[in-house]
Deep mutational scan, measured.
Amino acid sequence: YETDHQDYCEVCQQGGEIILCDTCPRAYHLVCLDPELEKAPEGKWSCPHCEKE
């Protein structure tokens, strides 16, 4: 399936195990989030940028 999400972390610009925001195209490593997450959230997730909106 096709997605318009970026394939690198918004914070460190590296690829790998990233989680995708359900609201925007941004993607993040769990450890690059502040506060960092230990595991990917279940269900819908909005990144810090979208949470501020």
Rank of each mutant, 00 (worst) to 15 (best):
Y1E: 15
Y1F: 09
Y1R: 12
Y1K: 13
E2W: 08
E2S: 15
E2R: 15
T3M: 15
T3V: 11
D4E: 12
D4H: 09
D4I: 11
H5D: 01
H5L: 15
H5W: 09
H5T: 13
Q6A: 14
Q6L: 04
Q6C: 06
D7T: 13
Y8H: 15
C9Y: 02
C9H: 03
C9R: 01
C9F: 00
C9V: 00
E10T: 10
E10H: 03
V11T: 15
V11M: 15
V11A: 12
Q13D: 06
Q14C: 03
Q14I: 03
G15Y: 12
G15F: 09
G16F: 00
G16H: 15
E17Q: 03
E17H: 03
I18N: 11
I18F: 09
I19D: 10
I19W: 12
L20H: 14
L20N: 12
D22Y: 12
D22P: 13
T23K: 02
T23Y: 06
T23P: 00
C24Q: 00
C24I: 00
P25V: 07
P25N: 08
R26V: 05
R26Y: 07
A27Q: 14
A27K: 05
A27G: 06
A27I: 10
A27W: 06
A27C: 08
Y28Q: 01
Y28L: 07
H29I: 00
L30P: 03
L30N: 09
L30H: 06
V31R: 04
V31M: 03
V31F: 11
C32E: 02
L33Y: 12
L33I: 05
L33W: 11
D34W: 02
D34H: 11
D34Y: 04
D34T: 06
E36V: 14
E36P: 12
L37G: 11
L37A: 07
L37F: 07
E38N: 04
E38V: 06
K39C: 03
A40H: 08
A40Y: 05
A40L: 09
A40I: 13
A40D: 05
P41N: 14
P41H: 12
P41K: 07
E42N: 07
E42G: 07
G43E: 11
G43Q: 08
G43M: 08
G43H: 13
K44E: 11
K44G: 12
K44L: 10
S46L: 12
S46D: 06
S46F: 09
C47F: 01
C47G: 01
C47A: 01
C47N: 00
P48K: 09
P48T: 10
P48V: 09
H49T: 13
C50D: 02
C50Y: 02
C50M: 00
C50E: 11
E51H: 03
K52P: 02
K52T: 15
E53D: 10
E53Y: 05
